[in-house]
């Protein structure tokens, strides 16, 4: 049987220095490039699905596919003995120039890709970034769109978003909100706490666990300061917050507990205090110190002169 000299066929020249083997390899490289581009595109599409917008995924896939094609064609062209050194030098110079010019754009692009993987924010989240508060409308490759609570469109470059402190208000499933409520010194704080806890318990979005807490936080200048702390589902905390304060206030009013008005005690000196004492004696059994409080009988820092 006659043997076919395959080496001879592969080495036979077609034109210039290009052999049949080179042409076959060229075709092989092109085919591999296309297959590789297809596989990598699919992988990227699958990886990014659900993590970012479809538009961004398309753009990313197209960009990466173009890069693969370019690299594949350049490598394949070496088989056809096409000298691409001039093109590469020119491309390098253009690349450096473009690189300098698009430094910010590239940093935004890289930040965008990193954001997609780290995912500190998602579409629909309520966030605070650099003083901007609102809902995330979309996360692109270069920028993130935020709709403020007042309906304004804000575009935040990804580089800025990535390097800033981000507060995601709904990242956790539950969050806490607080109220400060003042009641009069004449009111019973225990009764007020009980009334507040009762209405909080009735509200669906005030979570059972962690349990809400209501306590005397401080004794203020004008009244007793109560602190109310309530946990709520993150997506519904605003509903609870806006409804509960008024409900608590109404419950306190129902128990004859009221918010104190600002008060200021003015002293007119001992002479006037004595006059006040005598006048009070006519109408009431209470002493001045009973009315004004024992600590105020001889105020060391009181202005004893006439006002």
């Amino acid at each position: 049987m006659a043997e076919i000299d395959t080496n001879g066929i592969f080495n036979s020249l077609v034109y210039g220095q290009v052999t049949v083997g080179n042409i076959i390899l060229f075709i092989l490289f092109i085919v591999i490039t296309f297959i590789l581009a297809r596989v990598i595109s699919g992988l990227i599409r699958r990886t990014l699905a659900g993590k970012t917008e479809a538009k961004t995924i398309d753009l990313t896939v197209k960009s990466i596919r173009t890069i693969i094609y370019a690299v594949g064609i350049i490598v394949a062209c070496t088989q056809l003995k096409i000298d691409l050194s001039g093109l590469l030098v020119a491309g390098g110079v253009v690349g450096v120039a473009v690189g300098f010019a698009s430094q910010n754009t590239l940093s935004n692009l890289v930040a965008g890709i990193l954001l997609m993987f780290e995912r500190p924010v998602n579409v629909g989240d309520s966030i605070i970034v650099n003083g901007t508060e609102g809902y995330v409308e979309g996360i692109g490759l270069l920028s993130t769109r935020v709709r403020t609570y007042s309906g304004l469109y804000v575009r935040i470059p990804n580089d800025s978003l990535f390097t800033s402190e981000i507060t995601n208000l709904v990242s956790n499933v539950a969050r806490r909100f607080d109220y400060n409520i003042s009641i009069r010194y004449s009111d019973d704080a225990k009764k007020a706490i009980k009334a507040a806890k009762r209405v909080i318990e009735e509200h669906p979005y005030a979570l059972k666990n962690p349990a809400p807490s209501v306590y005397v936080d401080s004794l203020g200048a004008h009244g007793i300061e109560l602190k109310v702390r309530i946990w709520s589902p993150s997506g519904f905390w605003w509903d609870a917050r806006t409804e509960l304060l008024w409900t608590i206030f109404k419950a306190l009013r129902h128990e004859d507990i009221d918010v104190p008005f600002d008060q200021l005690t003015v002293w007119f000196g001992e002479e006037d205090a004595a006059k006040l004492q005598s006048s009070l004696e006519e109408g009431t059994d209470m002493t001045v110190e009973e009315i004004l409080g024992k600590s105020e009988k001889a105020p060391e820092n009181a202005n004893t002169g006439r006002v």
Binding site: N172, V173, P204, Y205, L207, K208, N209, W231
Partner: peptide
Amino acid sequence: HPKFSLYGAAS
């Protein structure tokens, strides 16, 4: 009467 709670940590 609807009422909600949290099982586990908030995070």
